[in-house]
């Protein structure tokens, strides 16, 4: 490996960042606007965002949709929804995606499951990020004493056997959507906190923070006005990546029977129920599974795109 190869990428212009000597003619576009422009140009991001938007609409309009389809999530169609042997019916004109072993319409149940997944996934992710940012910011900015306390706390949380803990907790207090959100948030914030702490430690050493301190700015002002805006990029990326994780987490809890209680549908408990029937009713397992995979994938791809848009250095510079 030669020296020249080692530094092969040195000093190349980054297309998305203004070049030295390249005075930008446009009127003060903020870094956010620039990121937004880059994001809109990214086809994968646009497709994923459209898919997620569709999911949100489906979740909001679950009731009218169910009415329009003609079944409710718990309606058991004894006529067309179940065979004479009491087995699920495959996709047909009555049930677009087939039925489950109780004759319930899978499409409708997936639609209601979307609602659960999004509500739990998004709220848990947002809650985790909020806690993580506050704790991480304090740990990173307020100096070694605060840092060692909070960093140890995060270590403790991260070393909890979370599934065991979740199952035990739910057994004691009983399952509910709120408990599920709290459990997921509780086990996710520490990872965010660690990342935010690391970022804060790096930002703290920047000259503009020194400048603010030399002007006499207090800790709170510096944390909110100078540090936080520079954390937003990684935080936004983290939210988009944490949502799918939380959705999977929710599905896992429901699958294990400590999340959403039947008969309320969630993708997790549908997959769990389908296990006993997948040999005779593939649709029972495949459609909820596909919903989970596609949703997770869409959020993950969007998260990647958001990261590329916010941090042009990771952009595939020369792919154009």
């Amino acid at each position: 490996m030669s020296a020249s190869e080692l530094s092969e990428v040195a000093d190349l212009p980054d297309p998305a960042v203004p070049q030295p000597g390249v005075e930008r003619q446009v009127e003060g576009r903020s870094p956010w606007q620039l990121a937004w422009i880059r994001l809109r140009r990214d086809r994968v991001a646009v497709v994923c965002a459209a898919f997620i938007l569709l999911l949100v609409l489906v979740a909001i309009l679950a009731d009218p949709l169910a009415n329009w389809i003609g079944y409710n999530a718990t309606d058991q169609d004894q006529v067309n929804g179940i065979t004479a042997d009491g087995l699920p019916v495959g996709p047909d004109a009555h049930h677009l995606l087939g039925t489950d072993n109780l004759g319930r319409d899978i499409l409708v149940r997936i639609i209601f499951g979307t609602r659960v997944s999004l509500v739990v996934g998004v709220s848990a992710a947002v809650a985790a990020v909020l806690i993580g940012v506050i704790v991480g910011l304090c740990a990173g900015y307020l100096g070694p004493v605060v840092d060692s306390v909070l960093a140890r706390l995060m270590d403790v949380v991260l070393s909890f056997p979370f599934l065991l803990f979740a199952i035990a907790l739910v057994t004691v207090v009983g399952p509910s959507e709120l408990i599920e959100i709290l459990v997921i948030a509780f086990f996710s914030w520490a990872a965010v906190g660690r990342i935010v702490r690391g970022q804060t430690l790096a930002i703290r050493e920047r000259e503009y923070i020194e400048a603010a301190r030399s002007l006499g700015a207090g800790n709170l002002r510096i944390m909110v006005i100078d540090v936080l805006p520079n954390l937003m990029a990684p935080v936004i990326v983290y939210v988009t990546l944490l949502i799918p994780v939380s959705i999977v987490f929710e599905a896992t809890l429901s699958y294990l029977g400590v999340g959403i209680i039947p008969p309320t549908p969630s993708w997790g408990n549908m997959i769990s129920d389908a296990q006993n029937f997948y040999q005779v009713a593939w649709w029972y397992l495949v459609f909820p599974g596909a919903a989970l995979v596609l949703t997770t994938l869409a959020f993950n791809l969007l998260g990647d795109s958001v990261r590329d848009a916010l941090d042009p250095r990771t952009e595939r510079l020369f792919a154009k």
Partner: peptide
């Protein structure tokens, strides 16, 4: 030359270091 004058790009191109 000053920054942006192209002096570095010039020689990096000779070395084949300006991909894209």
């Amino acid at each position: 030359g000053e920054s942006g004058s192209g002096k570095t790009v010039c020689t990096q191109t000779l070395l084949g270091l300006t991909r894209g």
